[in-house]
Write a protein that binds this DNA or RNA. Structure first.
Lengths: 248, 248
DNA sequence: ACCTGAACACCGTTCAAGT
DNA sequence: ACCTGAACACCGTTCAAGT
């Protein structure tokens, strides 16, 4: 009859379940409390704030990404594996991109992941700031790609468990968007074309295409120009610490 | 003494100013009302919801991106121009990425932009679904790149006009993140290295590097493999309409 | 040490009532 | 036609009080 004892881990777990099921706006301290049979304010004993909880949850799912062993594979397969792993992870937890966009995220698992990414592009032959540039490029591509997924995800959520009123409002938005698109030839072409070959039917294919192009571009860059040494740059997305330096 | 008359345009403009100054969480109907010397609820006469207002504001800033004339430039400069223009726009309006991540965005200006993007990669020589793939790849790279910028942006905002209490909490988070990073060799290296060569000092360079690599990859793909015809795919980020098809 | 309940300062949105 | 004010159902967070 009684609930599980509260703990940091249980709270994080419940938060992730809530986020996976309902997205970023589905997470509130009160609903978290309901789910754990506790007062919303009980969470504050274990977690300093909602923002902190979001950092902990983000770092937790970051741990799901398996990291390649650089001694056993060449840089390109390692890069593809990491990008693929990250892509799979954010596909399972679309809220992560939203969270990442609205506040800094850090933690042990993310740091380990970032460190390994840099190692991959060191091994590829980049030096100096271009290590960070190459890593950032791929990382950004993956996250950007997930952006589209997370919006269509939240849209579907609003459509499925919408409160009737908001449901019809979303429908109306879709109509409006469609109407606008029909006024532009290429968008119209795609709206009228067979949808079964669209993104929804093969979401992986589009990702693979882009990833290959990005890696091709990086590989081309290594081969055509043995790079001169230079200083390191801190990529802002891999390490948001940098954000504090330009402060007053 | 009296305020400007209310109108859709004025409301959108004020919303953008609020968003530019304080980010997504700085926008509330009540604060918008304050800024326009009106009741928060007065907005609902011109705008159906906050979400709708965000769509209008997003579409408005999308209009700031200048589109290249495809009859006057080759595809690669057109692609670079569009990517650069989009990048500049989201740098000036970092909240757009957050908005884009949390809800669908559409409108005339965005549709025109999307249509032109597709035209660019048609001109490049892609056919069928790969037109959409190529367009999506570059688009995603730009948006992903902006993701990092928008988080460091909101971080700086919290640091500068923080309520003392939250300010020290952000400081503490930064310390914590730093401490974690120091446990990983490559991150440590970068933290201890000279910061004046970091991302903050040359944010453009990192973008240019990545963009060149992405375009190199796409160019390589066109040249090495004359592509077979196939059906169109609707990229989910260019056109979120697709999200409604897999619904029950 | 751990948790609750009331309270505070916010939200988006609806709707009757005013002009 | 346009706007206000009160009200409702939510938020995150603090803090005294309980066990």
């Amino acid at each position: 009859m009684s609930r599980d004892d509260l703990s940091k881990e249980i709270i994080i777990q419940a938060a992730i379940e809530l986020l996976d099921a309902e997205g970023l706006e589905g997470l509130s301290m009160r609903r978290l409390g309901d789910r754990l049979d506790a007062a919303a304010t009980a969470m504050y004993w274990y977690v300093t704030s909602k923002s902190h909880l979001l950092i902990l949850a983000s770092n937790e799912v970051w741990g799901e990404v398996v990291l390649p062993d650089l001694d056993r594979v060449d840089w390109r397969t390692a890069a593809a594996d990491m990008a693929g792993g990250l892509h799979r992870m954010v596909s399972q937890h679309p809220w992560l991109v939203t969270a990442f966009a609205s506040q800094p995220v850090y933690g042990e698992n993310k740091a380990r992941h970032d460190d390994r990414i840099l190692a991959v592009y060191e091994k590829a032959g980049f030096v100096g700031a271009e290590v960070d540039d190459a890593a950032t490029t791929v990382f950004m591509f993956v996250l950007g790609h997930a952006l589209g997924g997370s919006t269509s995800d939240s849209l579907n959520r609003q459509l499925s468990r919408g409160s009737g009123n908001s449901q019809s409002r979303v429908q109306q938005s879709l109509e409006e968007a469609k109407e606008v698109a029909l006024r532009f030839p290429r968008l119209r072409e795609r709206l009228e074309g067979a949808t079964e070959t669209g993104y929804g039917s093969a979401p992986g294919r589009s990702f693979e295409f882009g990833l290959r192009a990005v890696l091709d571009g990086l590989e081309h860059r290594i081969r055509t120009r043995p790079l001169p040494p230079s200083n390191h740059a801190v990529p802002v997305a891999l390490n948001t610490l940098q954000a504090c330096t330009p402060c007053p």
